[in-house]
Design a protein around this nucleic acid. Sequence first.
DNA 1: ACAGGACGCGTTGGTTGGAC
DNA 2: GTCCAACCAACGCGTCCTGT
Length: 254
Amino acid sequence: MCAADFGIARCAPKAAWAGPVKILRGEWQAGTLVRRYKRFLADVRLKASNKVVTAHCPNTGAMTGCLESGADVWLSHSDDPLRKTSFTLELTRIDGHYIGLNTHNANRLIEEAIIKGRLGPALHDLHPDREVTFEGGRLDFRLGSQAEYHFVEVKSVTWMEGKGVGRFPDAKSERAAKHLAHLAHLVKQGASGTLVFCVQHSGIKSVEPARDIDPLYAEALAQVVSEGVVCKAFKTQFRPPHAFVTKALPVHIR
DNA sequence: ACAGGACGCGTTGGTTGGAC
DNA sequence: GTCCAACCAACGCGTCCTGT
């Protein structure tokens, strides 16, 4: 299986800021989604063999508008004998737009952009610490030194509504609000904090909080931004098996 | 010092069991 | 029968502990 089989250019887009990050691992496959069920699982018909396989779905969220039966999907493959499913659902294409489904890839993409210094001078660190724990909480990245720590929390945006408006969250999320509180708390203690929306949908042109889905989160976001937390969004471009962070997108808090 | 195993975290709809 | 809380599902990643 190769990218050329699906008319996909192998080269990186000229606008790529960072990467590439390989999002399709192992003997990756293209297929068609048959159904998603039990939150973690999806049946996919492989294009190469026409066989139906069960893949692990690493995004347990609502994934509004992201998983439609019959949609093109791409799967990673693992030889790990401990795994119950050899395939992992990574990417889909709906209405001509690529949508990254693996939330872990959002962190990898943003980490790559941080390492390359593409997210601005305040977010430039050769070796950010990942999954930093503190006072009962955990954030995705810590940059800098003890003199001036900079904490970064990454959220994956895959839900597009209307013409290019990315919305987050797609379901009520107490944890997302908790992460905002953690960032605000650290900023109050003198650190810097940035919330990064990693937009894994090629059709999204701007990001806004989904006030109708989770009004508490929308309020919390506006509050922490007023308290000094920086909120940014970055667009991902897909060239299977790779993905790239390409540019900043506007975030409309209110 | 290093390798490997155990465990915790994060994610949310479905299932199960108890209370009313 | 209905409601609610607790638990479970699969996986990757990081941390901690133990053995060599």
